[in-house]
């Protein structure tokens, strides 16, 4: 397929569609808000996917990087009134530094132990940021009057970051680095036997992954104007939801996290708002239930996610044309 500046034609169409999306649908700020949320989850999903989906290191503690990124934007503002917008520079960096130290600890572990180790690290940070009030303002959280009322600037900012993360993953996975990552995922011992420095490449994967998670965190602070340890270091609402976005979309696929984020946000909102106000009120109670059930069904029947198992889905719905995923 012909390529134009790293992306295929199809991908440019999607990007173009995404760039126009906030202007259609009546310019509703509510709808724009949902799109921003989708894109934020795209960044987080991509970040997790690079480490877990491609390198095989399933992190259950991505909230640690997200949270540290958010606080990297918030803490200088809280103490010195330095604009949180600087977080776009410092957020990713802070997460990489944290990732470097965490990596020293958790990369000693394999498989489920790695998962537990990352989970515990995230939880420890959540408690730490809640208790150390002198630095983080504790559970009071840090509030910032956001710069724009319009959502448009935020939308294009996060669209840019999301596309950046997509292109980055795509480029990396086409390079030698990507090959090393995959070899670690498939068989770490074999990779080592081939002379690949697995610790080094795992750390590189973690650094890139944590950079984007930290960037998403900094964006969250700039856009929401509020951080609190229970929100940004949340085990379920950040770490686990990130994983589920990856699972639903497709682990180890370029577009998987993007599709997963779209499905996750819209299914939850569809039910939460009782089908946008036309359904009965009790439907709104079901939003997480439906999403949870979807996760169970997906893992059971479509373990590769929507993108990974796209062929199976196509066949099931009677379409003959089989196409490789983009």
């Amino acid at each position: 397929m012909k390529k134009y500046l790293l992306l295929e034609k199809r991908e440019w169409i999607i990007l173009g569609g995404a760039a126009l999306a906030p202007w259609i649908f009546g310019f509703s700020p509510y709808f724009q808000g949902l799109l921003i949320l989708v894109l934020m989850w795209v960044v987080l999903g991509n970040s997790w996917n690079l480490l877990a989906g491609y390198t095989g290191q399933v992190s259950f503690g991505h909230a640690a990087f997200f949270g540290i990124g958010a606080y990297a934007a918030a803490i200088p503002y809280h103490h010195f009134k330095i604009s949180p917008w600087w977080g776009l520079l410092t957020g990713g960096l802070a997460a990489v530094i944290l990732g470097y130290f965490l990596g020293k600890l958790v990369f000693r572990l394999r498989g489920p132990y790695f998962a537990l180790g990352t989970l515990a690290s995230g939880e420890i940070l959540r408690l730490l940021f809640g208790e150390e009030e002198w630095l983080t303002n504790g559970h009071n959280g840090i509030l910032y009057m956001t710069t724009f009322i319009s959502k448009i600037p935020y939308y294009y900012l996060i669209l840019f970051i999301a596309m950046g993360s997509l292109v980055a993953v795509k480029v990396i996975m086409k390079s030698k680095l990507g090959f090393y990552f995959l070899s670690i995922r498939e068989d770490q011992e074999a990779a080592e036997a081939l002379g690949i420095d697995t610790t080094k490449y795992k750390n590189i994967a973690l650094a890139i992954s944590s950079f984007f998670a930290g960037l998403a965190g900094a964006f969250y602070m700039i856009y929401m104007g509020f951080v609190d340890p229970e929100v940004v270091f949340a085990l379920h609402n950040i770490s686990i939801l990130t994983i589920l976005v990856g699972i639903i979309g497709g682990v180890g696929t370029i577009w998987g996290p993007a599709v997963g984020a779209l499905i996750m946000v819209f299914i939850q909102e569809l039910f939460r708002s009782s089908f946008f106000g036309v359904g009965p009120q009790w439907v709104s109670q079901l939003h997480s239930l439906v999403f949870g059930a979807l996760v169970v069904v997906m893992i059971l029947y479509l373990a590769g996610g929507v993108v990974g198992d796209w062929d199976i889905i196509r066949k099931k719905f009677g379409k003959k044309r089989v196409e490789g995923q983009g």
């Binding site: 649908f25 009546g26 509510y30 946008f276 106000g277 036309v278």
Partner: peptide
Amino acid sequence: MKRIIAISFALFMLLNLIGCA
């Protein structure tokens, strides 16, 4: 896939308009 998204978005917008009306 794209069609599904397009349809769901159109539906969503319609519902949204009903809600505002």
